[in-house]
């Protein structure tokens, strides 16, 4: 069964299948598009920003001190984060949970902090600036929605690393997917 489909042992499905990964990659691309749009406003390439509900809210948030705390605006950092997520989601085949654990674990770790920072920024909007920014809320929702479906694949890779450790095979080589350790642990 798992020989054909790459299903991890003890699992009922393969978390690295394209059906599992594509929705996350698409979500990340949408997040990337919106964050790029917001960054263009912050970099003054475009001078208005779409805000259907909260009046002057988006402008207030996107030009706030928090958004300029780093040398590049937070929208640009967000766009970079979504791009990393999309790339880490798309690299590798359907057996990547054991052939390249590094990318799966990097993927899981990239999705986590992006979600955390998004939620933090959502909290700061009303607390510090008494304003809301619609598209910022949308991107935050996207990054939170991505966390759950990315974690199952990371779990499969971490379990694989545990089996590598128990089999006394080099965890370093297994993590980076060295050819010589491929197939020594299932």
């Amino acid at each position: 069964m798992s020989k054909e489909k790459g299903i991890p042992p003890g699992w009922s499905y393969n978390p690295a299948s394209w059906g599992q990964r594509m929705p996350i990659v698409i979500a990340a691309m949408v997040g990337f598009a919106i964050a790029t749009y917001l960054a263009l406003f912050q970099l003054k390439v475009i001078d208005t920003v779409w805000e259907p509900f909260f009046g002057n809210g988006s402008r207030k948030i996107l030009t706030s001190e928090t958004s300029q705390i780093l040398p590049i605006p937070d929208g640009a950092l967000g766009a970079l984060g979504y791009l990393v997520d999309a790339l880490a989601g798309i690299i590798g085949g359907t057996r990547r949970w054991r052939r390249m654990p590094w990318i799966v674990i990097a993927f899981g770790l990239a999705v986590g902090p992006l979600g955390f920072i998004s939620v933090l920024l959502v909290v700061l909007q009303p607390v510090l600036y008494d304003a809301w920014c619609t598209l910022c809320l949308v991107t935050a929702l996207i990054s939170v929605v991505m966390i759950g479906p990315a974690m199952d694949e990371m779990l499969a890779s971490l379990q694989y690393m545990k089996r590598v450790k128990d089999a006394k095979v080099s965890m370093w080589k297994a993590f980076w997917g060295y050819k010589e350790v491929q197939g020594r642990v299932i």
Partner: peptide
């Protein structure tokens, strides 16, 4: 669905995936 024993199976021994 089944998940190879879940998150605790990452550090415990003799789990479903093992």
């Amino acid at each position: 669905d089944t998940y190879g024993g879940g998150w605790s199976a990452v550090w415990k021994s003799d789990t479903l995936h093992a």
